[in-house]
Design a protein around this nucleic acid. Sequence first.
DNA 1: TTCTAGGCGGTTTTT
DNA 2: CCGCCTAGAA
Length: 638
Amino acid sequence: MDDFLKGLNEEQREAVTYGKGPLLILAGAGSGKTRVLTYRTTYLIKKMGIGPEKVALLTFTNKAAEEMRQRVKNLGGEAGSLGFAGTFHTFCAKLLREYGQNVAVMPNYVIFDSDDSEAVMKKVLKEMGIDPKESKPGMFLAVISRMKNDLVSVTEAETKASDYFRRLVVKIWKAYQDKLKKNNAVDFDDLVVKAVELLKINRIREEINEKLEWILVDEYQDTNRAQFEITRLLAGKKQNITAVGDAAQAIYSFRGADYRNLVLFKTEYPKAAMVNLPMNYRSTQNILDTAYGVISHNTTHPTLHLETVEGSGEMVNFFEAGDERDEAKYIVEQGRKTAEEDGAVAILYRTNAQSRAFEDELMRRDIPYKLVGGLRFYNRAEIKDLVAYLRVLNNPKEEISRIRIEKLGKRRAEVFDKWLEQKTDDEKQENPGRLLEEIINVVGFLERFDERDEDDAARIENINELLAVASDYKSVEKFLESAALSESEIKQHKSNAKITLMTVHAAKGLEFENVFVVGLEEGLFPHSRSMLSGEKEEIEEERRLIYVAMTRAKRRLTLSWARNRLVFGGRHSSIPSRFLSEVPERLLKKVGGVQEVERKMSKPLAEIDEFGEKKRIIVQDWEIAEATKDDFAEIDNW
DNA sequence: TTCTAGGCGGTTTTT
DNA sequence: CCGCCTAGAA
Ligand SMILES: Nc1ncnc2c1ncn2[C@@H]1O[C@H](COP(=O)(O)OP(=O)(O)OP(=O)(O)O)[C@@H](O)[C@H]1O
């Protein structure tokens, strides 16, 4: 055990071995916050003799949850035996499954994901005779979601609805909720909202508080009001709650998260012990100074100048690409080289759409890679279609899935209904993979696809993947829950991939030897949407985002931007991100100067499978790149 | 009832 | 460029 504590510095040890009561750890990136949480979990169990089933570890994203479970396991713990280790949403879903009746949620309820919610909303608007072109479903969903996250009830919203728009929202909200109810469904936000309602019932909260006595929450700066409430209620009277967070890494305010919850924690628990972790164990000093150079421009929250236990390390690379393919080409090449030498490589971008150019290049060169996020596996049309059949099997009255099925063909739907009628309840409890296979055959699902078509072949592959995944679940119900909440790790280009592609959001909490932060252009990073309102807060969030991105790097960091980029199918030239100018110049090293030549030489190669028209466009790019050469002088000043 | 062309609008980020 | 939706043909 003493050996175990040797892996910690003084402050970390203090936090890990802290006894009962509330504990707040505020510390910068890479200072070992997550390490403290996992060590503390292990410490509680192994040293303090607390039953693992009494401990709940809460995170925000599936990725972070996975990372956490892994780390607990590496310390010799059984992540599986913990009371809970996963996301807020999963926690709430489980709670509702067991106790839901108390807040009018049936035990066999289904979870509607955002696609389903949108389908419901569209239906509501249609039935109310609102033109979807005038008022978009997404807009109403966003407004309602925001209120739910803030724990505003419909009733409350109604009494406060002073103008026409707000009254309309309330009306739509009610209709939307009715539909969910009719379908025995709960949407993402309601999972948390209903769980709060549930935990407010004394009898139930006390029962849960008995079961889960130790609550540990990662990334507290990203909790929203509803989630804050969950943690508060879970902490109960004992208040054995540990929270870690860093205001400089708050990047989820778009979904109602508020880093001021860190302050609220102190208000809620005035006696909370506070620990700060001063040393960074992840990155080189140059990387930290680069990140600090940027984040120090934020004024609405404290920013820490981190110090590493490592040396200063290499300079930070700065690459200027002609266009997004240049960017991909250079970065993939550099990534490939270092992946061979020293391991994990991440290419981080602001928006999912940016993965395209990198995937094309990696694919072309047949380099294994891993893509995180993007279109969720379970959101793909062919997968949703099949899942819809299972949902109808699970609950024949569920209209959203029914509509989906009918869109696949009236005849198919009828065949399916007949098949379903003959099924006994027992048969419906069969293995979901088996059931799916049967459905596919009965309705002739694959007839729509032509395996010679490339896209269709990929769809068939997805379907096979689904069958494999589904077979692992005992019941349809269990499978459906996981389908709604989890991010299935589907097959990648090749499995031994050392290069990972993902958004900065998805990379939070992770670390890599070599990190590329790409697309650093005004309008992309910071994103134009955050510049629109002119709100300082929004730009500051973008700045925190790039701060998170940079601090993922252990040894090497490269920042890049492209002078010209394909947006919406059209070419646009850009100027470098303001964040680049915030990096102290002495830390940057310009790289890839030979790129222009390289590009010319490799051009014919790059276009092997393209057709005439595309070639023309490329020639045009080239011309544009030539034309913007004058910008060089200006850009060189960066 | 089913299939397809083309008009239209839209992009942040996640559960 | 891409996916969604609708109108109109098969
Ligand atoms: N005392 C220590 N000795 C050795 N390595 C450490 C120590 N503390 C932390 N580390 C290592 O430093 C890295 C960063 O730690 P960790 O991920 O826990 O930081 P964090 O504060 O959660 O970071 P972030 O907020 O950026 O997610 C990890 O690789 C971790 O193993």
